[in-house]
Design a protein around this nucleic acid. Structure first.
Lengths: 115, 115
DNA sequence: CGGTATCCTTTGAGATACTG
DNA sequence: CAGTATCTCAAAGGATACCG
């Protein structure tokens, strides 16, 4: 019987849980779709993320090396975000999930309504 | 500029958010690895999930048609869980993520330590 | 054994106001 | 414009006890 007890270093739990939050995936998707983006642009494309949660999410993604943050010493300040290679390498897997979700969406929502 | 504003029916947000919780993926993985399992067996293979959260997670996965639940009218009761076809069809995509996480784990944890 | 109900703590996340 | 700091509230999740 294969075990899934916490070993203290499970990559699923360590790494992926950070991506399972409300916004990380969407930030990666919009950066992938639109290339280099400013803070306010990302904010607009997501629409309903709060100012605060966007900064928090961006910081976490930066810490994990998924995105790169570049500050320009201008007034008013300009900050640009882009995917790193590591971030880009994750995207095909996300797309796999998205396609699966699209394919199974109807059936799943149907089942939820029934119960 | 491609947009990711909430359309009211985004499959990423509707369907995948249910899988982004603390336990769903692990339950699917253990069922995939071990086949038909009883409640208490799943409980043991995960180790640190609470009794309550396991029932909650199993109910959600059942509602979404990812697993099948079978109750046997015995004393003491026996309840068996197994993956459905739909649940199984998701697993390759999860494995994709797991492999990515394994490949990038060191670098990511390293980066976190540094910041 | 498997599940439910209750209570309680912790975390996630929005609103708002302020700063360089 | 981008970011930080508080405050607040809601949801997630654990502990415990009880039921069929």
């Amino acid at each position: 019987m294969k075990n899934f007890t916490p070993t203290g270093s499970c990559p699923v739990r360590d790494v992926l849980c950070r991506l399972g939050d409300k916004w990380s995936m969407l930030v990666l998707l919009t950066l992938n779709a639109n290339g280099v983006m400013r803070f306010s642009e990302i904010h607009r494309t997501l629409g309903d993320i709060s100012h605060r949660m966007l900064t928090v999410t961006l910081r976490m993604l930066e810490t994990d090396g998924m995105i790169r943050r570049e500050v320009y010493a201008e007034v008013p300040p300009r900050v640009e975000y882009r995917l790193t290679e590591r971030g880009g390498s994750l995207l095909p897997h996300i797309f796999g999930l998205v396609e699966w979700a699209e394919a199974n969406k109807e059936a799943i929502l149907d089942g939820r309504r029934r119960s």
